[in-house]
Amino acid sequence: MHVGYAAVLLLLLTASAGCARGTPDTSASEPQIVAVQPGTPPPASEPAAPPTPATKPAAPPTPQPERAAPPAPRAGTPGTQAASKGATPVAKPPAAAAPLDLKALEEELKETKAIGFFTKITLKNQVDDLLDKFREYHQGKAKLTMTDLRRSYDLLIMKVLSLLQDEDQKLAADIASSREAIWRLLADPTSFATLEV
């Protein structure tokens, strides 16, 4: 048995989702894409909205993550008091400027000496398990809510950061800064479906 480091992409969720799986249910997710796309703004333009308590997707074709409309920062709201002092009410998406470079992350994870072979495989197993949950959620089969998924995602990220932060601070920082971008990728059914192709 041989499991190469190439297979160990921690949040190389793309590669993990695309290669390791080949699930027969990808066709089942296609109707979702059609159903969700028209009403959903492009994921790249969305701010990192915190997950709200989720209601389970009622029917398989139209599960909708709880990120209905991107909340536009308003002057006067508590979080934007500092910004409201100036005359320019320009909404800046928080930390959304850094583009998500999964390839670079993949390379860094493959190369890092901060965690050993078994640890990488274990983390990949856990990433795969989480991806299974997301897949089920987007297909409307999951018993989990988006809040549950977010909790699992945060826990996994925390494990990864805990393992990396002492000996590979750069990678830990890269993952931390990509955290919301990866979440958006997973939470949005359209972008998640593109990972599976």
Binding site: I115, G116, F117, F118, T119, T122, L123, Q126, K159, L163
Partner: peptide, 14 residues
Amino acid sequence: EALKKDLTAVIALH
């Protein structure tokens, strides 16, 4: 030492 550390992490992850 690296092996022990690896195994420690794996057991903790489980």
